[in-house]
């Protein structure tokens, strides 16, 4: 019933600097639900193990959600009335699970002299060990007639419903250019999650992505349209998957040069039944994009013409 894919591509800038990819991604498909998850390791100086931190984050997330779903019928029966509490408990458990994993990694792999070299002793001692592994996280679950998701830090989640309505159910935070983002390594991480639960519409597909994908677009409309197109091609996933990877590489290379991760889960049977709806939406979006572009160009040219006219009048007066 459910299917999915997940890919992480290395950012062009990381490749140039010979830095490992800081992103991780995963998806897990079960009979009655599926999970998509991505994590974006911070990658800066004090987060020198954030590639491992992001891997621990996706593994901790899949494991935690699977534990909550050990009795699928029970959790699905409880979600409509207790979604906030359940999601909050999942978030807390993910943080706890992540901390166990990174601490285990630290015990088995003590910090090396090479890793400490960029710091003075005082500087190094001031860094909390969990910061070495700092990462963001976005995860979502698709069920037969509901979906929910959770997020800490930047990145995007897009949901496509059975009428091809495509939205970002969690608002992209008003980020500032300093790229300061909430993180799994924050001491109050469990209280920093955003989440959503939706059951009034039937989900077709969910896409979680790290911010490298979002920032390769010129507008939110383009970003959402891209996901509707992705959705329209999922019926032939085997043949389409190489195109997805290629496109992510292109977006990193010609966009912000950041790592990009994309994880998707979708309802295969429902998609087969609704393929015509999604295809029609793609066509409609294409027309709307043309109209938006034309309106923007018309508006800009109108203003430019006024500027040129005013300038000509001034020159004439002089």
């Amino acid at each position: 019933m459910f299917n999915g894919f997940s890919h992480s591509v290395m950012g062009a800038s990381h490749e140039a600097k010979n830095i490992v990819c800081q992103d991780s991604s995963a998806h897990k498909v079960h009979d009655k639900y599926a999970i998509c998850v991505v994590a974006d390791g911070h990658g800066s100086k004090k987060h020198f193990r954030s590639n491992i931190g992001s891997r621990c984050a996706v593994e901790a997330t899949v494991e935690t959600i699977e534990k909550f779903y050990e009795n699928v019928d029970e959790i699905e029966a409880n979600l409509p009335t207790n979604s906030k509490l359940i999601i909050r408990n999942i978030e807390k458990q993910i943080i706890a699970n992540w901390n166990v994993r990174i601490m285990e990694h630290l015990v088995n792999n003590p910090v090396t002299e090479q890793e400490m070299a960029p710091f003075t002793t005082m500087e190094f001692e001031a860094i909390p060990p969990e910061s070495y592994y700092g990462t963001t996280l976005i995860a979502a679950v698709i069920g037969r007639n509901y979906t929910f998701g959770l997020q800490i830090g930047d990145g995007s989640l897009v949901a496509v419903f059975d009428d091809a309505w495509t939205i970002m159910p969690m608002d992209y935070e008003e980020s500032n250019p300093a790229n300061i983002t909430a993180s799994m390594c924050n001491s109050n991480a469990a209280s920093m999650f955003d989440s959503f639960y939706k059951r009034d519409k039937v989900p077709l597909a969910l896409f979680a992505s790290t911010d490298g994908l979002y920032t390769s677009f010129g507008s939110d409309n383009d970003f959402l349209d891209y996901h509707t197109i992705l959705c329209s091609q999922l019926g032939d996933l085997t043949n389409f998957e190489p195109s997805i990877i290629k496109n992510l590489q292109k977006r990193s290379h010609f966009g912000t040069e950041d790592d990009i991760s994309l994880s998707c889960v979708f309802n295969n049977d429902l998609l087969a039944a609704k393929q015509h709806v999604v295809d029609a939406k793609v066509m409609e979006n294409r027309e709307r994009a043309k109209t938006r572009k034309n309106e923007l160009m018309r508006d800009m040219h109108k203003q430019r013409n006024e500027v040129v006219k005013r300038r000509a009048e001034e020159l004439h007066k002089r």
């Binding site: 990381h14 490749e15 590639n51 383009d222």
Partner: peptide
Amino acid sequence: MSKDNTKGYSGLLDFDDDDPLNATAVS
């Protein structure tokens, strides 16, 4: 199932014009 730290693409980028994903431009 986890696909972490995938090696990036370093060769020449050759993109198919018929790829539906190319409908939305890279900024």
